[in-house]
């Protein structure tokens, strides 16, 4: 993992701590220790991913996914 930057701390660390603090006691119990990475052990393996030579298909585990239904959404800045 690359060195954690100030922006990473400001966005991801602060944001996820905010979420962990904000969720209710019940949600917190469901979510486990959200800041210690426990979700990684909760049943989904890191699925093998391939992208074909022409770069036209992405396969994540058994699933092929696409971004077509994101068409029309162009927020940017």
């Amino acid at each position: 993992m690359p060195m954690q930057t100030k922006l990473f701390a400001s966005i991801v660390l602060f944001g996820s701590a905010l979420g962990a603090a904000a969720c209710s006691a019940t949600q917190a119990a469901d979510a486990g220790s959200t800041l210690d990475g426990s979700v990684a052990d909760s049943g989904t393996p890191d699925s093998p991913a391939t992208i074909d030579a022409a770069g036209h298909d992405a396969t994540i585990g058994d699933a092929k996914i696409h971004d077509a239904d994101l068409d029309g959404w162009h927020p940017t800045k």
């Binding site: 991801v12 996820s16 210690d36 990475g37 979700v39 990684a40 890191d46 699925s47 991913a49």
Partner: peptide, 8 residues
């Protein structure tokens, strides 16, 4: 950081 797999 949130423990999610990122291989893909």
């Amino acid at each position: 950081h949130l423990g999610m797999p990122t291989g893909a």
